[in-house]
Computed example of a mutant assay.
Amino acid sequence: MRALSGFTLVELVVVIALTGIMVAVAAPRFANGDIFETRGDAGLLSSTLRYAQKTAIAQRKSVFVIHNDAVEPNTVSLCFDPNCGGAQVVINPETAGAYVLTFSRSVVVQSSNKGLGFDGLGRAVPNELATYTVTNRNNALQSVGISVEKNTGYVH
């Protein structure tokens, strides 16, 4: 008679327990949500820049993207004047209030042009390349760049 081969119940329990321990230790490293926040905030910033450009074209007047960490940290506001005073704010159609984009705490946004604007034809004001970099505070390797072309105002 031939002997049956296979695993005993004890061996299976030990393997399942070791696999569970390895998953519990390794999973947080792979399931870190920081990259999702970085890319999500970069997507929101890109959409905000495009909305500013479309609003400038629709209203036939300049719209400025104000990114001033000294006044209101980690935010971007849309205004019809470069100083963003009072009644000159762009209205957010979602909230019916002032258009202010607030980034996650785990994200830092740097811009080459703190007072970027779009004229009534959708061109960048001033007429120079503007770049935004959205970087994760916890991992500097996780960063996303956004550019606004100087002659066309194309956001990519």
Rank of each mutant, 00 (worst) to 15 (best):
S5N: 09
G20M: 09
F103G: 07
N92F: 04
V14R: 07
L129I: 15
M1S: 10
V89R: 04
R137N: 13
A70D: 08
K61R: 12
G86H: 04
G6P: 09
I146E: 02
A96D: 11
V107P: 00
A26N: 03
A27C: 11
R50M: 11
G20L: 09
S111P: 06
S104E: 13
A31Q: 09
V25T: 13
T38N: 14
R39H: 12
G40L: 11
F118S: 11
H156V: 00
T95E: 08
V125T: 15
L18M: 14
I57G: 01
L4R: 14
K150A: 15
L49Q: 06
V148I: 12
V63D: 10
V90R: 01
V10L: 14
V14A: 15
S47H: 12
V109Y: 05
V155C: 05
R123V: 04
T48V: 03
E128V: 13
N68S: 13
G43K: 13
I146P: 03
S104Q: 15
A17Q: 10
Y51H: 11
S77F: 01
D119S: 09
R60G: 00
G115E: 05
K150V: 05
N83C: 00
G117H: 06
G43S: 15
E37K: 14
A17L: 14
N32A: 07
Q110F: 03
P93N: 10
Y132V: 06
L121S: 10
G86V: 12
T95Q: 08
G117Q: 05
A17Y: 04
L44P: 00
V108G: 02
G40H: 06
F36W: 03
N138D: 12
N68A: 12
P126D: 12
T131M: 10
P28I: 07
G115C: 03
P93Q: 11
T55S: 11
V10F: 12
Q110P: 00
A58P: 03
G117I: 06
P126R: 09
P93F: 14
L45H: 07
N113G: 01
R29Q: 12
H67S: 08
A27G: 12
S5W: 03
V90T: 08
N32E: 08
R60D: 01
K114C: 00
V107Y: 02
V23I: 15
A98C: 07
Q142D: 14
N32T: 03
A70Y: 01
T75N: 02
T102L: 04
V134Q: 06
A17V: 13
A17K: 06
I16R: 05
N113Q: 09
I66T: 06
